[in-house]
């Protein structure tokens, strides 16, 4: 098959993945919305009624993941390289990592309720990617031709996916905490969420789990910069913000482990650290200068 047909195949596979994510979105929406028995008092819920919708949602999520995975691989085949050379490819692979992190956590924790926000976030990311960020498949500029590209970028993307998942959970924590601290009942969509403490621990576990990976991503970047540009650290905007993200998460871990922060304060700090990551990804890629601007925009 020719290079172009692989690229088309990749595009179609990614479109199909979006169809599955849309289906997952509707299933999860049904799961959340119809778990309330309207004829009875508002406080009565019957999750068994919508369990099937939830299960369908998870299946759709897995299918979307598999198709997206294939789409990323086909893109790589079409370009004869790892598929993360510009911002379109970063976004698609990032969406893959994010879904992967969610599905992985799903096998260990009861967080199916996250399916709704996760499917929305994935659809938005993929939608932006195929409309605004799309670039035809092309070879890499010489500086990107390195094994370290594969190592550095994949570590960064996976860390990013998990950071964002931790952010979703910290966000959910903060919203629910508002209800509970005012002794209000949880809103309907949140009836199935675990206890606040579980959310708190879960976002910490996720961060503690990927912090070493993020550290590794930064170090791999430095090793690559050394071989491509002659210095391992140059305070390029991208590097600077990667460092800031690293410090922010280190501060979060310290605040939890050594000062004993829990709950609200910790969740805010987690959101803050995650936003430095997003800032780096969005702002520095698009508006930034410096040597990391390979976004192709």
């Amino acid at each position: 098959m020719s290079q172009t047909s692989w690229a088309y195949l990749s595009n179609y596979t990614i479109y199909s993945a979006m169809v599955f994510f849309t289906a997952a979105f509707f299933s999860h929406a049904v799961e959340v919305a119809f778990s309330v028995k309207n004829e009875e008092a508002v406080t009565k819920f019957d999750f068994a009624r919508t369990d099937r919708a939830g299960r369908i949602g998870s299946t759709m999520m897995w299918l979307g993941f598999i198709f997206l995975f294939a789409g990323v691989i086909f893109r790589g085949i079409s370009a004869h390289r790892v598929p993360w050379g510009n911002m379109y490819e970063f976004s698609v692979t990032g969406a893959l990592a994010f879904t992967g992190a969610y599905l992985f956590a799903l096998t260990k924790y009861k967080i199916r309720w996250l399916g709704l926000p996760v499917s929305i976030a994935v659809l938005l990311t993929l939608g932006t990617a195929i409309t605004i960020l799309y670039r035809p498949s092309a070879p890499l500029v010489p500086a990107l031709k390195s094994t370290w590209l594969a190592i550095h970028v994949s570590a960064a993307i996976v860390s990013g996916g998990v950071f964002l998942l931790a952010n979703c959970i910290a966000g959910a924590y903060l919203i629910l905490d508002r209800y509970e601290s005012n002794s209000l009942p949880r809103p309907r969509w949140a009836q199935k969420l675990p206890e606040l403490e579980v959310l708190d621990q879960l976002s910490y576990r996720l961060v503690a789990f990927v912090f070493p990976l993020w550290t590794f991503a930064v170090i791999a970047g430095a090793i690559w910069a050394e071989s491509a540009w002659g210095r391992y650290w140059g305070w390029d905007p991208k590097e600077t913000w990667a460092f800031i993200t690293w410090i922010a998460y280190a501060a979060y871990l310290h605040a939890r482990v050594t000062i004993g922060w829990r709950g609200r304060k910790a969740a805010w700090l987690c959101l803050f650290a995650g936003s430095t990551f997003l800032f780096n990804y969005i702002y520095v890629n698009i508006y930034g200068t410096g040597r990391h601007t390979y976004s192709g925009l």
Binding site: G234, W235, P237, I247, A251, H254, V284, G288, G290
Partner: peptide
């Protein structure tokens, strides 16, 4: 003390920000 160390760490992060917002002689 631990607290100072953490504060310095955060300060280092904060101090790095202007360098990413203003052009730097060493780079450009």
């Amino acid at each position: 003390s631990m607290r100072t160390a953490l504060l310095l760490l955060l300060l280092l992060g904060l101090a790095a920000i202007p360098g990413s917002l203003f052009p730097q002689r060493s780079q450009n």
